[in-house]
Nucleic acid binder design. Sequence first.
DNA 1: GCGGAAACTATACGGCATGAATTTTATGTG
DNA 2: CACATAAAATTCATGCCGTATAGTTTCCGC
Lengths: 235, 235
Amino acid sequence: MDGTRTLGRRERLRIETTAEIKAVAMDLMAEGGPGAISLRAIARQMGMTPNAIYAYFATRDDLVTTLISDVYTGLADATDAALDAAPPGDAAALIRAWGGAFRTWALAHPQGFRLIYSEAVPGYLSPEGGAGAEAEARFCLGLTRIAVTAWPHARHLHPDDFTWDDFETELLAPIREIFPGLTPTALALTLRIWGHLHGIVSLEVYGHLRAPAATLDKIYNAELAQLIRSLGIDP
Amino acid sequence: MDGTRTLGRRERLRIETTAEIKAVAMDLMAEGGPGAISLRAIARQMGMTPNAIYAYFATRDDLVTTLISDVYTGLADATDAALDAAPPGDAAALIRAWGGAFRTWALAHPQGFRLIYSEAVPGYLSPEGGAGAEAEARFCLGLTRIAVTAWPHARHLHPDDFTWDDFETELLAPIREIFPGLTPTALALTLRIWGHLHGIVSLEVYGHLRAPAATLDKIYNAELAQLIRSLGIDP
DNA sequence: GCGGAAACTATACGGCATGAATTTTATGTG
DNA sequence: CACATAAAATTCATGCCGTATAGTTTCCGC
């Protein structure tokens, strides 16, 4: 029995309209930034009354939360796919794949980047735990995998300053289950690497790095190269 | 003759009111974030009509631009002061001073950090060249000074991949005048270091780094320590 | 074919930035 | 001191925004 078979015209329409609302919202965001997402603009675009949207999303914030989740999922999909396409044991290749996918995605979806990382929607308050929490966890898990893969080469280069007490156990448990070889210092390193790449890409996306595009490519490649070196991996 | 002596009551009041508008706007931002900056809220707080503010700032965006400039100036003052208080030739001390001042300022002024780095004001569009451009230049100049100071130790650790052609000359000229010893690769390194620290602090300010405050301190200190090591400086 | 739910519209309220016109207020000058 | 003038502030209006409430249409399952 096919589950979708039982969908009546009603629920099919509902799904399609929901998708259209999100698609129009994404379009508005793509040109105009996250702040351009408004129920009235979406309704105008769709030839509807603003209030009709309330049949699909309880509030504008609910819609934005869904968008953040979708967009972050897209980012996590991109980095995961890059990781899957790289040779699993080759830490340098994993770094180049993940790092490249991250920046490529960010430059292709600058407004999406702003949406998920800078609360750029006027009155929006993200729900507890954050909007794209699940996707963000998956996104970071990829980076953690890299750190775990590289750790045998890297551990002697980094002072072993951290213990598991430095992290909150409820967040920790699922990660340690997936990566039994993870150490506290490797986790701290993971967060720092995240920061490095996030920072460079973030400055680039927001236009603070006033250099030609080709130079920004070189700078990011230099960053990845030094990251690989700093993890004690042979080029 | 004292220049301020010639100020009449009128201009003194104007200056005071302008200052009060900015102060109230800062207060609103401190509790409620950059998005809470609204002319009506400011006017309410001051017991005025919203339109009265137009006598002091042409538009809300003008006010925001001024605020960004003020806030960024505060950040640049903080990092400059830290740099001035450190032993000039000691690159490791400069890094710890600058990096520490940067993060300390960001944690003390999280909403200011959001204001200057993430365009979090609803419909705000920053003018050409960016709002806090002068302060940002000064802020980056401090970091450049560190890179220049450390470069003799660091240069053999970094492949010399960059040339002056990689950067735009009009932005470059004033910097090269201040730092005759600056090389293109050192400048690229400066931007990358900016990215590293910006990214870690940014993730922390936005709550993406879900770890206890003490751990975040340790992570940042580990970052500064590794930065010093990666520049070939003895501890 | 009929009851009820889902989808949608109409109207309204309060908040926002801002423009134009107007009144109030203070200043410098005759 | 009185008055013209410019600055400061108010009032009124327009057009955005989210969203609450109430009413209407449409379609599905029984």
